[in-house]
Amino acid sequence: MADHLLDVADLKVEFDTRDGVARAVNGVSFTLDEGETIAILGESGSGKSVTAQAIMGILDSPPARITGGSVRLRGREILGLPEKEYQQVRGSQIAMIFQDALSALNPVISVGDQIAEMFRVHRGMSRKAARSATIDVMKRVRIPGAEERYGSYPHQFSGGMRQRIMIAMMIALKPQVLIADEPTTALDVTVQAQIMDLLQELQAETRMGLILITHDLGVVADVAERISVMYAGRTMEQGPVAEIYHHTANPYTEGLLASIPKIDERETRLPAIKGLPPSLFAVPKGCAFHPRCPRVSDQCRSGAAPPLTEVAPDHASRCWFAEEVYGNVADA
């Protein structure tokens, strides 16, 4: 079997805190191929951002500890690489854009110089060459008047433009994998669409693999090819977009889909998922979702978490009743 572009297997991350050990990521697996977009969907505390940071090797350690699993980039294990070698990977092979571009950019360095820095450090370009490469990449993310705005500072740009600058900086070195952590959450709706379109366009050009981390089921519907749903640090369900939206095999995904308001349907009362996401210090035994699950049975309450069970090709769900849920929805 050919190597995937990125292969994350059974990743586990813990945080040592004064309240004990927080199991932020507790067995996450997914693969990403060239030119593919996978969405990692989850609520706060689901471990989706920690997963991204673990892949990037930017977790603060301590308190974070990677306690298991592997992350392979084209077959090469990158977890536990020495910092020097990881720095070579970051930026040039895997890059990440953050939700809040204003705090991710340095406020006292002009945006042009910040992008040019990438070329100078990783590619060893001369000042002049880096400048022209920077202007090229600024044009590619469609920043109007790229030459004139080279010397502007982050605060002089609007939210949407700042996000474009961060994207420019991250695609500057043509990474093979781009991780976007809630890239549009802080933006206005009309600007969100622009940024998502830009990301898709860049991906089509460069064939990079794109990991979209989000809490918003709507944003990823027509962007991602596959979706991985996380809950309490675990992958709950994984599969092609259409399968997840129309033939989910997991009660959590089912509840999530039912509970979000849809602009095309007027429902006054939405079926909400009862209860709260669990504390990471006391993840429920058995299936982590069982206290909130409408289908809960004794099997869910005790013992080990259910395994990821394949219900269809490339579609797996972590639920004892995966087949049943899948069947039910398909019949409906």
């Binding site: 004064r18 309240d19 932020a24 952590d181 669990p278 504390s279 990471l280 006391a282």
Partner: peptide, 28 residues
């Protein structure tokens, strides 16, 4: 990096293990 902090912080629930006041935090 503060995101991680936030994730862990926000997941502390009244049903979680320790409940503290702000001064309790300081004293800890």
């Amino acid at each position: 990096m503060s995101d991680i902090q936030l994730d862990v912080e926000t997941s502390v629930r009244p049903d979680g293990p320790a409940s503290r006041t702000l001064l309790g935090d300081a004293w800890y």
